[in-house]
Design a protein around this nucleic acid. Structure first.
Lengths: 257, 257
DNA sequence: TTAATCAGGTTGTCAGACAGCCTGCGGGCG
DNA sequence: CGCCCGCAGGCTGTCTGACAACCTGATTAA
């Protein structure tokens, strides 16, 4: 039976967690199914998972596939397993990783929350950057601002360029703040947002008057960093990034839940 | 050969990445070895990993073990694989998860950066909490403050109780701010720190005068939240958590790198 | 020279096996 | 009757071998 079609015979029977439709890899789908059950409250901390064998049968896959899925969940501290006993859903405070569920990009409210999380980090990073900036850093930031201004005139790719420049500025700020953890975090969240919402964000900046206002906000922010004024940097950063988040969330065509 | 001792015959030969000593699970060790190579710059974005077979031979394990390790790295977006081609180190902006390396708890500077990252989130959460708090929330926070005060008198477990109460307050603030992402994030970081540094932190609060000052800072924070004053909440939160981070990092017996 | 073909390597999945560990049950002993 | 020991069964962790689908690069044919 090796190499049989991965959508096996018994697939139309009722599955406990969720059916697999083929597309992404099988372990991935099982992870999604299990985390879904967790989110839905069908699986709660302390619960024991079915045995790997049972899950394999239920999902209609080989045990190795189930093991890969569970190994990913273990890596995040979502489940813990004990030899000879079984695998258990861990307590929330046992988690060792932070990751963004795709659901964040479905609802306007969720997206806003995600952006507010990111903003908290960026705002403090801006203050740190104001204390640690070098002339070279300032030059780099001003080059980014210049790129933004030039982008306004570019009718074709202007919005795209503006969008990228805004991201660049955030990354530079996090880098200047000299905090790799913050940098990693911001880059991670920002990339995910960019990937899922690039088109919306670009449409967003098409409104030139919005872009001009956004640039002005960022100019003030860079000025504060240049002055070495952490209090002002925080204030300007909060002003800009809160506005930007609001603008993006307002525009994003998401469910209003 | 099934079930043979997992430290196989050829294990004393030179390994490219790092030798396995047995202890944690084999996939875990391989993940550590690979991420170590990544950190050390021996593996860079775009590089191709050796084939699963080759890695299995090199590490002296079965291919399934290597697959589990790689599947974890794929889950984090650190590695991407293409059927028939191989597995590649992804670009940093492709990461989909944020996790804390154990190295953070080795160096004072790293720990401080981690705390500053957390603080950014907590500070903004405090402001949000000031806008969203209910009477019930306030009552909960004040109960926590009361617990802190009482803990001061407890010579035996006082420090421990104080430590837990401080964590509680952070979690409540994040919860009241009504931002699950921020809550998840803060809980994750905080639990990791608590796990690794509990003893140091407890010793830290043993100095009663420090604890009293810390409580006073947190009283002011809760008052600001109670007043519904986000600006003050931010300010008080920053004051307390920056101080707390500094105190902890100063005390923690870490390398001064 | 260019296009078709093929061989080898690689990932993804499947199947079966065994060691070591743990739990719970039942029987024997005090 | 109660307690302890031992055993059977189930579970995870690891190993082995196999095959399908796929891609790359070289060889061959037109």
């Amino acid at each position: 039976m090796a190499g049989q079609p991965a959508t096996p015979s018994g697939q139309d029977r009722l599955l406990k967690f969720k059916s697999l439709e083929r597309g992404p890899s099988l372990p991935q789908e099982i992870v999604a199914s299990l985390t879904g059950a967790l989110l839905a409250g069908e699986l709660r901390p302390g619960d024991r998972l079915p045995s790997e064998q049972a899950l394999a049968t239920e999902f209609g896959v080989a045990r190795t596939v189930v093991r890969e899925a569970i190994s990913q969940l273990k890596y995040d501290g979502i489940v813990q397993s004990r030899v000879g006993v079984g695998a258990f859903i861990a307590q929330p405070q046992e988690r060792t990783a932070f990751r963004i569920s795709p659901a964040c990009f479905k609802k306007r409210k969720e997206l806003l929350k995600l952006l507010r999380l990111r903003n908290g980090v960026v705002i403090e990073a801006a203050a740190d950057a104001a204390l640690a900036r070098s002339n070279r850093d300032i030059a780099r930031m001003e080059a980014i601002l210049k790129e933004m201004r030039e982008a306004i005139g570019d009718r074709e790719h202007g919005a795209e360029r503006h969008f990228e420049a805004e991201r660049q500025l955030i990354h530079v700020i996090a880098k200047v703040a000299d905090n790799e953890h913050a940098l990693n975090f911001v880059v991670m969240i920002d990339s995910q947002i960019a990937e899922k919402l690039r088109s919306v964000a670009v449409k967003n900046t098409k409104a030139t008057e919005l872009a001009a206002a956004a640039i002005e906000e960022q100019v003030r922010l860079v000025e504060a960093i240049k002055r070495g004024d952490p209090v002002a940097a925080r204030e300007k950063a909060r002003k800009h990034y809160d506005n930007a988040a609001q603008r993006l969330a307002d525009r994003a065509d998401l469910a209003d839940v």
